[in-house]
Design a protein around this nucleic acid. Structure first.
Lengths: 151, 151
DNA sequence: GCGTAATATCTCGCTCACCGAGATTATCGC
DNA sequence: GCGATAATCTCGGTGAGCGAGATATTACGC
């Protein structure tokens, strides 16, 4: 596999994009006095809310690869910042549901807003078919790596 | 901006890919008894070596958004793990150059190898023009976000 | 050349994110 | 009901990263 092959270029740029997004998250976190982990958690929680997946501490911990102690600490932090609220699940009273506060969605938009604007601006230069190609490729990579990680 | 618009789908999948890559890094780190930060540092150092950019603690700290104390601790860790070597710069003797050991490149390949294999497999289903479209799009997003972060 | 400012790195003390182990509380199958 | 299982939380400890400041080397103004 040549270092200059088209596919290797793709790998490099993909990696560079993830590094860049990480740094964006870290800077956003620092600017708002929270930790990169909190931003990552926020992303997962907003994602869950968007997809109507019930979010619990256990679920969040699995997403973030944190153990239960770390997860409790994380949720404590988020609750203290008034970004989430703990509520008991009436069906299974062992469970605690995490509900994102409005403050959290606002924070989420102020993080993603600029990113979305960037991507929208870039997308201007591509036609619908091309964007569909990009989306298809990224989706395939996503599923492929998720698959690989699960094994 | 509709949540189901093609561009928003792209944003979501891009974000999902970065989350997935983060998790890959974290799991790789855990499996090798090091920290996600160490893996990130390794990526930056191997990148620098590949591009013939001289890597110093200061440079690495800027890439990672660590302050000097944290950077020193990081380099200490990497040196203890025999992944990098500190050498004095003869031109500017205030500076310390970080040279990656062979062990580090091996570790890098064992991390990227599987990822590359995934991307290569996915790329099979796309022709050269399509891959070029994807690469162009990601490169544009990369530059655009780098630009935005600098301001 | 000489003193001063700027630059690169490191040291010290501290905070707190995260882990391992285990306690607590609630649910389910028998 | 009772043991097994599951979800969450508590406690104690480790160490990554920060702020402040020390040290060493180089660049600049005179």
């Amino acid at each position: 596999m040549n270092d200059r092959s088209p596919v290797m270029e793709l790998v490099h740029v993909l990696r560079a994009v993830t590094v860049e997004f990480d740094l964006l998250g870290a800077e956003f976190a620092a600017r708002h006095g929270l930790h990169p982990t909190d931003v990552r958690a926020l992303i997962h929680l907003l994602d869950a809310a968007r997809k109507d997946i019930p979010a619990t501490p256990g679920w969040l911990g699995r997403q973030m690869r944190l153990n239960s102690a770390g997860t409790t600490a994380l949720v404590d932090r988020l609750e203290r910042l008034e970004l989430v609220r703990r509520t008991k699940d009436t069906a299974d009273r062992r469970r605690v549901l995490l509900e994102v506060e409005e403050k959290a969605t606002e924070l989420g938009w102020s993080f993603f807003g600029p990113v979305i604007a960037e991507v929208v601006a870039v997308a201007e230069g591509f036609d619908t078919g091309e964007l569909e190609t990009v989306r298809g490729f990224l989706t395939a990579v996503l599923h492929s790596t998720q698959q690989a990680r699960a094994t």
